[in-house]
Design a protein around this nucleic acid. Structure first.
Lengths: 205, 205, 205, 205
DNA sequence: TATGAATGAGGGTTCATTCAT
DNA sequence: GATGAATGAACCCTCATTCAT
């Protein structure tokens, strides 16, 4: 609230932005504190006033990333759209955010795996409550009458999120799809109708 | 063919197995040659008679992994099953292999991203020709009359493969699904019918 | 100029002195960074803040050595002494400097050969312009009317310098001569009068 | 004498030749046993049946080198030439041998310095008795009536030898002199008449 | 005798982290 | 609070040497 806290916030932001940039480019292990400090326009020592260990950067990034991604999702879930429209919009928004913060997304997708179990708990809590659960709920709304049981919704949410993040770190996907709009379209169709929906038939095989 | 080549093959296998184990556990960068050597029951120096640089381990792993995964896939594509059955079997086989070689799969899923551009070409070639293309073809067979164009098949194959690998390195998925059979079922349904297929309706929205 | 530069200079000097000492003792390849660091009373890592590669130590030494040796030589060449007196003084001064900085001289004499071609150019330039050329000029002044052509002066300068350095790294010479004054006398006579100058021809100066 | 000894001799020669070649090219420390073995067309292990440690190669080389250089020198000293002619021929022969066995000479000139004190004794004995002393004697014969005392002969012999070897490892000398004949001429003149001998005093021989 | 696979000591180098200024 | 010089643990990799065949 006071001036000191503002500085702290500012510095954390500086470090966060720099870390995302450098880590996205080189990967966590090849990114050096020196370079992150340089990128943040700060001294190496200053970094260590805001984190305790290099690893903490991943936490910082994950936290920030999750909150960034959660941000708009809740709006969608609160809207009055049909379940299918909601799902579509979730895919849209998520991919747009991933596109916009591509380096952050890439860093998260790749490095979050390496967070130590102790530290994961906090991140996971935020992730599940503010993000995964919202998407799960939207998926749940769309399932009735389809081939999936209600308890499949969570896994389907996991899969949906994984597919979205895939865009950020797979060169292959990007090369094969060409642009993100194509990828959006494919994800939506795949999720809503599967590969085999045909005009004249239906049913779950 | 002769005895010498046999030793070479044996050693490479030893190193491969040890590397997969250690790298799956700690990640490439935290895995040390010392530990891999210990795991392989070899001296540190011996490792370097079979690879030139630590990085080569990823190549070794990727190559072996791709060939392992390709192994049974072609059988499927050559079978006389219906397209839908083929796709289902591909998912089955892939996930079973990934389950069986879970550490290899995890290593590949995570570390292949870091292979240097120069070395990627070779791996990619094998991957695309022996694996991706086969799956793409199977997907193509299932698309006609559905919502997807033929040229979407490649991306869909990418996505399918990524979702199979997801099983090996996502704790989340494993926890949420409980067992791999559940995951198999969900993946098959999702790809074949999407979330919304209902008894009485159809069409691509 | 400012405090920072002073530290850098101080550290480089520390490292230079330690490197000369250790390398003179063990030779470049048997000298370890660890020992040089210890001798310099610095941490191993600190060394690498002032050099990029171990090899750079030779450059550091060569540069410093050449400038040290050049120091007094130009004074001589500017003096009003007779050509013969100049040459004598050059030998005097050079041998005295080599004696004084015997470890530096030994290191230079032995290790300069191993400098990579790329880096040699810079050293050679300084060496030739500030040192070799001055001695060559002095030799040139003494040649007219003698057996040598003017264009031999450069080679003779090379030889003279090499013979001075010989003192620093040849145990044999040191044992056979006993003291440096004897060596000075012999070198001077040899260069000025050769082995066969007899009383009746000209006297021995 | 018997077949076994012949093999031993042959192998030692093979190793010697290969070692000289590789070491002259890369220096002792950068030369590897592997490469020397390859160059000798032998297995790495075989090398170790003829030497105990890598360092022994320098001994082998030094021994061989000294005996090679001594070879023709004694003939000269036994001849009936005038002292001046003898000295001239010594320079001629030495430089010719150094030219012919340039790699050996270079290796000796550079690496002999690093031989451990314990091992030096044997080499030095051969060197002094078969080589240095012969040259010293020839020099002694030429001194009477000149500026040098008899006891300077040894140092002068050291210097003469050093000057000859200079040719083999100084790029500078080779570049400045152009060819070895020039260098021969300069050495002879320098040694016999010094830099200042003038026409009117005695002529240049 | 000849071999080269196996080995591990040891060296150069990097970089996270500390701490005096 | 901000800094970056100093540090040394730790890693990759080389290579002399051994030894079973």
């Amino acid at each position: 609230m006071d001036a000191k806290t503002d500085t702290v916030k500012k510095r954390r932001k500086q470090i966060f932005v720099a870390a995302v940039k450098v880590i996205a480019d080189k990967g966590f292990h090849n990114a050096t504190i020196k370079e992150i400090a340089y990128e943040a326009d700060l001294g190496k020592g200053t970094i260590y006033q805001y984190i305790k260990k290099k690893e903490d950067l991943v936490l910082l990034i994950a936290e920030e990333g999750v909150s960034l991604l959660s941000e708009k999702i809740e709006e969608v879930s609160a809207s009055l759209d049909s379940p299918e429209q909601k799902l579509q919009r979730i895919i849209d928004i998520q991919l747009s955010l991933i596109q916009k913060h591509s380096m952050l997304a890439k860093t998260m997708a790749v490095e979050v795996e390496h967070i130590k179990t102790e530290d994961r708990a906090r991140i996971e809590k935020i992730y599940v409550e503010n993000f995964l659960k919202v998407i799960k709920d939207s998926i749940e709304d769309v399932l009735p009458g389809g081939c999936f049981a209600e308890e499949d919704a969570m896994i389907l949410a996991d899969i949906l999120i994984a597919m979205c993040f895939l865009w950020s770190h797979s060169d292959f996907i990007q090369r094969h799809a060409g642009d993100i709009e194509t990828y959006k379209r494919i994800l939506s169709h795949l999720f809503l109708y599967g590969l085999t929906r045909k005009e004249k038939e239906n049913g779950c095989g």
